[in-house]
Every structure is written in C-alpha cells, then in structure tokens.
Design a protein around this nucleic acid. Structure first.
Lengths: 154, 154
DNA sequence: TGAAATTTGCGAAAAATCCGCAACAGACAA
DNA sequence: TTGTCTGTTGCGGATTTTTCGCAAATTTCA
C-alpha cells in the first residue's frame, strides 16, 4: 500500500526545501543508504506524494515586479461560469494562483505584472466583461517566504 | 555579466514547470547541446535567476487540507511592528505565504491547517493579541495551478 | 578588419541514479 | 516457537547524467 512512514516524511520535508539533494545527502540526513532513499523518493513521486519538482525563478528576472491580489465578484449564474473563468485565468501568464473562495468575493487571483501600467491594461482587458460583477485590487508591497529554513512541527 | 538571453529564458520557463529535466531533454527543447544547457542552468543558479528548486508535496500527504486567506489589520504603531509580526508568522508551519499589502488590511496570510478545528485553535493562539486589531478569514474552497502547461507570453 | 572575450560542441572523467540480488525484519498462521 | 510470506534493506555493477578541459566557432568592440 501507499502508506507514508517517518522516513518518507523526513524525505518530503527535506525535498520541500531543496529538491536537488543527492541520494548521498538524503542518506546522511535520514539514516538510510543512498539507494534506499532514492527508491523511496521514486515511490513518493509515483504515488503522488511528490506532485512535481519546480525551479523558483527570481521575480526580477521573470520581469514580474508588481504583485497584486484581486478579489473577483462573479454575477450569480450557472455554476459552470466560475469554472470557465477559472480556466480562462489559468491560461494567462500574469496569473500565478487562483482560489475559489467563500465570502464577498468568489475568486481570488494573485497576479504579477511588469508594471502598474501593465496591470492597468490587464484589468481593462480581462475584468470589464459581463462575467465579472466587480473586482477589488490589493497591492502587495512585499511578499515573504514562509519557511526559508526547516519549519517547526504542525 | 549576468545578462539573460532568449536561451536562458527558455530554460527558466522549462524548469519552472519541471526542474527534473536532464541536460538531454533541455537540449532537445531549446536547441543547444546538453552540456551547454547544463552550463547555463548552473550559471542561472549562481546568479540567482533560479532561486531554488523545490518539491511540491501533495497537501493531503502534508496533512494540511484546509486552506484560508487571512486579512490582518494591525493597529497603527511603530513601523517595525509589522516586521515583527511578519517574522513571527513566517516561523509557523501553518503559514505558507505572507503579503504586506495596501488597503484595509495590512498583512494577508495564506494558512493551511489539518482541519477547521485546527484553524480555530490557530486563530485563538495567534490572532487574539494586542498586535492585531482585527482579522477576516476567507475560506478557500478550491485552489488551482495557474500554469499546468507552458504559459503564453507575458 | 582584427584581437580579445565568450560560448559552443565534443569527449573523457566523475558522480549520481537505477536495478538485480541475496539477506534481513516484521506479520501472521499453524 | 517455527515456518512462510511480504516488503525493505544494503551492496555492487550497469546505465545515465553531470562536470570539466580543450579546441573551434561566434560575438564584441575598438
């Protein structure tokens, strides 16, 4: 079965911070042989415990220097309207996350643009449509990594 | 110099989605030799264009199944108050991102907990203090990957 | 145009991953 | 307790990937 034991948890926690560690490094940290570690990591990938491994690109380099939170209010209508919008936004390069939420708003997007001017354009193109009742923009002044180093237990 | 050319951009875009590609795969995609690709990736790491490479762990496995957006209002005071709070929240395992924002709220957190009950506890412990004037919780019903496949140009 | 600096591809060396195999550990029935 | 079954380990070798030196090619800039 695909049960996760304490070795697996330790491996996941290590790779969550740095996915580029070798079998040897992992072995040192968890107390198994390199081969055993790699076999476990392989298995964690297969069962989906590790969804994927990605590189985090510096925002400056990516040319996305302005970050915004956008609260979207969707007019009442067919339930698939939100889903359609979600798919539409997922395809846009400026959109980094999409949340379907409770409360006054229906969708919350995090958006990254090269400039405020670029964001202004973005809103004009995408938010003035009859699919969107209203929206509110929150400007992110600074954003911080949550766990630069090993996190405490939940 | 640390200038980024179009090959580098292509590599960054590839690794942003999947950091586990080999030199051979990258070479195929960008049209350089494997060695040249790996040299460039190495350099992108050194100059910080690639900040780090991480594994994305399935939330179920991580045991964090409830996601929330929390808008925190901080009472007016010394400007370092927000910074102190920020550091405090960054250390908590449940907190995944921290934004310092404009608008009614001052800080926006994304929080992940094992259950609503766990979140209720979390709020009691961390949000009822004189450092926090008020807070509003938005429950995330669903969250979506923004760019499952290659993103369009910005 | 020509010299200097950078980057490329190639191939060998080093390192890491993968895979088969025998040994070991735990679960469970007799 | 004994024996079997299942799953995992460590080991070593085969395979793949990364790293590095070097000469050729390309770009830069005066």
């Amino acid at each position: 079965m695909d049960a996760i034991d304490s070795f697996d948890r330790k491996l996941l926690d290590l790779l969550r911070h740095d996915a580029r560690q070798t079998g040897r490094q992992l072995a040192e940290a968890v107390g198994l042989s390199p081969a055993a570690c790699l076999r476990r990591v392989q298995r964690l990938r297969e069962i989906g415990a590790i969804e994927r491994e990605v590189a985090i690109i510096s925002p400056q380099v990516a040319g996305q220097t302005v970050k915004l939170l956008v609260m979207l209010v969707i007019p009442p209508g067919k339930p698939d309207r939100i889903d359609r919008l979600r798919r539409k936004f997922a395809a846009l390069a400026q959109v980094t996350t999409i949340y379907h939420v409770t409360g006054k708003a229906d969708l919350v997007l995090t958006v990254e643009c090269a400039s405020m001017e670029a964001y202004a354009n973005f809103t004009e193109v995408h938010f003035y449509s009859e699919d969107i009742a209203s929206f509110e923009t929150i400007v992110v002044l600074r954003s911080y990594d949550a766990h630069p180093e090993p996190a405490p237990k939940a």
